[in-house]
Amino acid sequence: MIQEPQTEKNIWQTLYAIDRRWLYLILIIVVSILVVNPITVPNVVDPAAKSLYDYLSGLEEGDFVYIESDWTNSTRGESRGQFEALMRLLMRKKVRFCISTLGDPQIPDIIRPIINQIAQEPGSNNYQEGQDWVMAGYFPNLEAHVSGLVNNIRNAVKDKQFAGKSIVDTPVFEGINDLSDAKCVVVITGSSTINLWYERLRAKTKLGLMCTAVMSGENIPYYVSRQLVGIVIGAKGAFDFETLLAEEWPADEYPDYTNYTSGRRYMSPLFFALMLLILAVVVGNIAMIQLKKSGGRS
């Protein structure tokens, strides 16, 4: 008679005071299994990501987009998928682009191989550096660079060269005399460099943002106030872009196109990891309530 509530209390007490390393172990096992054997999941595209995709997808051949890519390996999980999907879209649409980076001098070396690899894929129109896109490279000074681009885009990047001549003399910059000639500025970042663009862009052109999920809270208000044409959030945003690519270039018509990369790959581990988290919260709370009921506190 006395023993029964005693054992029940013990279960909750054990759960209440469980060693956190068991939680860690479960997380590691769950994620490992799904990283090695991912499950393909369906998607419902977020309207904010679709907004940016639709805008870029509606551009015409030969239009010009300015890209500021600020991510490094430390946010690779989210930013790389976004960046790859953006490159695929622009190359398939034959939109010219110029890339600069603010965060880190190594970024050009991280992203150039990715661009070149995507340029070789079917559907990428064999994009050539210096012909269809240029790398303006790294700029150490955030303030001066963004203000400079807004004031005089050619002047701001004229010192950067491709194959011995200034990138503004390449076909990529043909007809681009002011930032307002660019259809859009897309910022891919894991840090707050986007704030400078809000402060300095002076509505010269549209602004799109691809950011990590942790930054989305502070940046969604700018999407609501239409300072951003669209916002692509974290790995899910990358998956949205990949899904939209696959809708525009479906696999049965374009069998050799690559649409899905890390965005979809990371979705199933993420789902189960978050489910684990939710389960942890629920169990933790039930344990607390049960303990309270039986009057015992650990």
């Binding site: 946010t75 999980g77 990590t212 942790v214 809270g217 990371y266």
Partner: peptide, 29 residues
């Protein structure tokens, strides 16, 4: 909302590290 999105970022970072260790390094998949 901020808490939710923060958790997503941290988990994706870990998933990316797991990918790095299991697929890129150990080549298990």
């Amino acid at each position: 909302a901020i808490f939710g999105t923060t958790m997503m970022t941290r988990f994706v970072l870990f998933i990316d590290r797991a990918y790095f260790l299991l697929i890129e390094w150990l080549r298990l998949g």
